[in-house]
């Protein structure tokens, strides 16, 4: 396996209210893999995800120790361009939030801010990202209608497309199928296989079952600590740690 693309070293993160969300977490994520962070509520999964593109900066008065490097470069370094970082490591939230405005406006919002003015380039990215998110056929004739008129599943795919349009290197998916019906869930899961050919994906899954279905490698987090990390086909069948096994087999959580 090649060198780590994103590496997390001895990461501690404590929120304003004194709750320690992450405790000494160390792991490596490689290019073009689908890496799953799973565990019960309050395990620190979302916190870790938000640290990867520094959306954690928005949570005030926090304690942070340790390092995250992207391609060897410390993302907390003073000279890092946060906007550029968030375009390279793009987040899709659990609750899909289209911005008010048209479907098209949602897709080009980040692109225009990134300084892309060329109309042809914008249109090319709009179509390609919608196709990658499996939404193109449903919305290609109504790109100028309100994004808020879309159904829940379509919204989720729009938000995915919005991230993809930025042509990021890493996509952070925070429970991308929450609130979706089984068919939409299957659509999203299928598109993940396509996506990881081009992108590196870090995902917090909806359930252990989903984690087992989609992951290449997985990490089990519990109360902010990394319990176990490994290849999915091994981990979900022969977990090494008793706590992982208890969680996977449904004895808690």
């Amino acid at each position: 396996m090649s060198d780590a693309f994103l590496s997390v070293r001895n990461l501690y993160f404590t929120y304003d209210d004194g709750i320690e969300a992450l405790h000494n977490v160390t792991l490596d994520i490689y290019r073009n893999e689908l890496f799953v962070l799973f565990g019960p509520a309050r395990a620190g999964k979302s916190t870790l995800l938000r640290l990867c593109n520094r959306l954690s900066d928005l949570s005030e008065h926090t304690e942070r120790q340790g390092a995250i490097t992207l391609n060897g470069k410390d993302i907390f370094a003073a000279d890092i361009n946060i906007s550029a970082l968030r375009r390279r490591v793009s987040m899709v939230f659990a609750i899909p939030t289209p911005l008010p405005g048209s479907i098209h406006a949602n897709l080009v919002y980040g692109l225009k801010l990134a300084g892309i003015r060329d109309k042809g380039e914008l249109e090319r990215r709009v179509e390609r990202s919608l196709r990658q998110a499996a939404l193109w056929d449903e919305v290609k004739d109504r790109l100028d209608t309100s994004a808020l008129a879309l159904s829940g599943g379509q919204r989720q795919r729009l938000c995915l497309a919005r991230s993809l349009a930025l042509e990021p290197e890493i996509i952070l998916l925070d429970n991308p199928t929450s609130g979706l019906d089984p068919i939409s869930t299957a659509t999203v899961e299928e598109s993940l296989y396509e996506l990881k050919q081009r992108y590196t994906i870090i995902m917090v899954p909806h359930s252990v079952q989903q984690a087992a279905r989609v992951a290449d490698r997985a990490a089990f987090l519990l109360n902010g600590e990394l319990i176990e990390v490994g290849r999915a086909e091994r981990m979900f069948v022969h977990p090494q740690d008793q706590r992982t096994e208890d969680y996977i087999t449904g004895r808690f959580g």
Binding site: A84, R86, M91, L99, L166
Partner: peptide, 21 residues
């Protein structure tokens, strides 16, 4: 608040977020 978070996550600066969202 989500509009701000989404805008920032798409690479907008704080002022751009205020200005556009």
């Amino acid at each position: 608040q989500q509009f701000r978070t989404v805008s920032l996550s798409l690479g907008a600066s704080r002022w751009q977020t205020i200005r556009y969202q």
